[in-house]
Design a protein around this nucleic acid. Sequence first.
DNA 1: ATGAAAGCGCTAACAC
DNA 2: GTGTTAGCGCTTTCAT
Lengths: 344, 344
Amino acid sequence: MTATPAEHKRLQMADIARLAGVSVSTVSRALSGSTLINEETRKRIEQLARSLNYSVNLGAQNLRLQKNQTIAVVVPFDAQSRQHISDPFFLSIVGSIADALTDRGYDMLLSRVDAERLDTAAALFDSGKAIGLVIIGQWRHHDQLNAMAARQVPVVVWGGQLPQQLYCSVGGDNVGGGFLATRHLLQQGRRRIVFLGDAQLPEVQLRRQGYVQALHEAGWAADARLELPVPFEIIAARQALDRLCAGRTRFDGLVACSDLLALQAVQSLRVHGREVPRDVAVIGYDDMPLATYSDPPLTTVHQPVGLAGGEIVDALLSLMRGERAAPRTLPVHLVLRDSAPVQA
Amino acid sequence: MTATPAEHKRLQMADIARLAGVSVSTVSRALSGSTLINEETRKRIEQLARSLNYSVNLGAQNLRLQKNQTIAVVVPFDAQSRQHISDPFFLSIVGSIADALTDRGYDMLLSRVDAERLDTAAALFDSGKAIGLVIIGQWRHHDQLNAMAARQVPVVVWGGQLPQQLYCSVGGDNVGGGFLATRHLLQQGRRRIVFLGDAQLPEVQLRRQGYVQALHEAGWAADARLELPVPFEIIAARQALDRLCAGRTRFDGLVACSDLLALQAVQSLRVHGREVPRDVAVIGYDDMPLATYSDPPLTTVHQPVGLAGGEIVDALLSLMRGERAAPRTLPVHLVLRDSAPVQA
DNA sequence: ATGAAAGCGCTAACAC
DNA sequence: GTGTTAGCGCTTTCAT
């Protein structure tokens, strides 16, 4: 609320030095807690600095010290759908990482890149803006991530563990999650189970593996007509669901790759006169808060979002220390609620 | 996945210069799009740089150019409850701001500070780490925010507009929201309406003003027994709600200060044998996605989260240009769903 | 069109 | 203990 660009009047060490009647080195020492300085001068300088709201310029300090405490967290976006950060799961993961980084004394730079060009995220590292990268999701570009890792960019990816993976990933047990959900439905007597999710995405592909595996164990084969490759984006997903429900494909169970997708399915089913769980049992994924409050409360695969941030950050830090960081798969479990209860 | 801290081998301009057989100045010119350079040399250098994944060190560049494109977004946390970023509304706002900043070419630094010491956020500016600040919520420290603004820290606060406010705020119309919710309940014949929210927080205080105003217009006075000063934190809120429901205070309507709070109320009421909306009509606040899917779907005050990011960022940018930025109040509206339907 | 040199704000030898 | 000086990686006069 001033009329002059506040930019120009930022204090610097030389100003403090002049006002205190000492040299800049003395100020530097006073403010950096050096031992070889008179206690009284330090007090005086510290107080002066504080009273003027002076803080050491971190850009200059970092340059001089060759140091940096910034980690970039990259949330890819789908350029086609111009999708924004809105998926509650992504947001939660970001929150979890933010907490973990704060706890460990790092700064977090939040960036967005085109999901088709994950490799552009490396510029954040190459330019020295960040000393490490966290990328949320592999999307369709396992290869780009591999290339980044191959040239030593410190990067941890939230996502699935894939064969021939050079980068470090941290993620929920996707195969296990898909399996648990599907097996539960089978155990409740469901036979025709829809799988809802775009298997082009590695995480979804892995969940699908669990789905297929559960079917096989029960003696069934996967049926391509029951696989609905919907994106995470709600509007498009809903259209696909409405088509499915309006069509003549019969099904009595459904495994979705997010809670939001599952709830869209519930709504679509309702519109088409089918009841959950009576006609179709539905299982979500993620266990976001809304799964508790929804109608019906959602049986869903719980992802350990709270832990995720710490795991991701710890993996990245060890990577940056030069250690090899093995991919980590975090345990998931099924939370039973009403959309796919025991005793269907 | 290497065994050597990758830190040391970051390329710099001198390396490129050496490899290209030119001076650093030439490289600098080539990479910065200067006109006084041979087109062929530029091509050659650009290609060399690209092939080596070289990017200009932005720390050094910023220092030299006295420039910086980083905006800090600060999400305060309640140190007592050790609360993490989990409130879906905060997360959404952060997402919206992230999108707005990305669109406008700024970097976003996400920080957390103790909600009791909002003023510590100013260090991000004083140290030159960020050239502008966005703070999510006023919490209990209007005064600290005023002090920051008074000393020219470019800051925009998401929150309510208060008297004697020196800083620029952007926020939903809280008085209007509280009013709309309460009036709706009154129009549906509800008479004893609980207000759920900690009026120590300015935004909540404003919503309470709207609540009181609606009561007055209908000829009623506020009843202190119907005001439940719960925090946004779920566990504590739930305890207070259970106490209310178990007690002998009668009420047939409830206005909550977040959707999560409203849904906790619904659950608490259920546990105590009361039905929503039949016995108690409930209205939430924010209109998060879960409000659509919940049981019952929540009548709630819609906040324009999608717009918020752009408004906040634009206000901040104009502030940084040295213009005076007036506080902005964004319109809210009531979304009618089943928890407080028309025709109670 | 290109190179040499100064300097952005800071820290760390190295003097004294 | 404190000041002087060099230099972190870059851009930009100023020469040539």
